[in-house]
Design a protein around this nucleic acid. Structure first.
Length: 260
DNA sequence: AAAAAAGTCAACCGCGAAGGT
DNA sequence: TACCTTCGCGGTTGACTTTTT
């Protein structure tokens, strides 16, 4: 007996998510919390497999996500962590609040890798390219970490184009959201509603009402400021990343355009 | 202005781990 | 202990965008 596929491929929609689908998924999770992902699409009225829903939520819709390029400091941290941990993107992402493993993996492959190669460093071993083979056979984790630190300064000098964001390895400092992940805000919509009201967001906003109401799913129609884009969501995701002591840093970047 | 090439990143796939029965 | 289900991870793909020719 083989492994059951995560979904039967017939009747399951694939490809890019539409605004409508996002809306359904968000409203479902905010009102019901995260439950069994396999059941989510059915309960939320989506023609997607559970896996796809989980991925969409964790990589894109989660309210505590940062958007935009990694800052120089974040990049440096990624390099250090990669030297220590290798391609364990989820472990690396855990040290960068608001960043997903997918995002870091993409950034590594598209930006950091090239920078390191340009600088003559093997991105796989974190050793100089010329003797990377020989070096890798006798290198230690500590050595790699130390070496990666050596070129951090150069890296930051070469590319300071990224915006600066407050960086902490402690996710609790970064986000004022209730603990995300397997518990916290995405488990308890009340926490989310409370948090939103505490942060000066008026609950008069019609699109917020659905989160605390007992409306059936699907009744959010017309309550969200949906205009066919997810721009509003980006704004509220940025709100999610501002802790009480960093409001002035990240909170308003999206609105003044400096984040993108 | 158009075509080609390169870059970016959201989404998919398959596997392994964890947990339940 | 074996089997099954679910979830999460890392690698990869491919659609879309941007840059170059």
């Amino acid at each position: 007996m083989g492994r059951q596929p995560c979904c039967d491929k017939q009747g399951v929609k694939r490809g890019p998510w539409t605004a409508e689908e996002d809306k359904k998924l968000i409203s479902f999770i905010l009102t019901h919390g995260r439950c069994c992902w396999r059941a989510v699409p059915k309960l939320a009225g989506l023609l997607r497999c559970g896996k796809s829903c989980r991925l969409r939520w964790t990589n894109y819709l989660r309210p505590d996500l940062k958007r935009g390029l990694l800052s120089t400091a974040e990049e440096q941290l990624v390099i250090d962590l990669h030297a220590k941990l290798g391609n364990r993107w989820s472990k690396i992402a855990a040290k960068l609040p608001g960043r997903t493993d997918n995002e870091i993996k993409n950034h590594w492959n598209t930006h950091i890798k090239k920078k390191l190669i340009k600088m003559g460093i093997d991105p796989a071993t974190h050793q100089p390219l010329a003797n990377s083979k020989a070096a890798s056979s006798q290198s230690t984790v500590t050595d790699e970490s130390a070496k990666s630190s050596d070129f951090r300064e150069e890296l930051s000098l070469k590319d300071d184009s990224h915006r600066e964001v407050p960086l902490s390895t402690d996710s609790s400092e970064q986000s004022s959201w209730p603990e995300s992940g397997t518990n916290g805000c995405d488990q308890d919509p009340e926490l989310l509603v409370n948090w939103l009201s505490e942060t000066d967001l008026s609950m008069d906003e019609p699109w917020l009402n659905f989160m605390s109401s007992n409306d059936e799913l699907g009744n959010v129609e017309g309550m969200l400021p949906w205009d066919g884009t997810t721009d509003w969501l980006l704004d509220y995701q940025d709100f999610g990343m501002c802790s009480s002591n960093s409001v002035d840093n990240s909170m308003f970047h999206a609105s003044n355009g400096s984040n993108f």
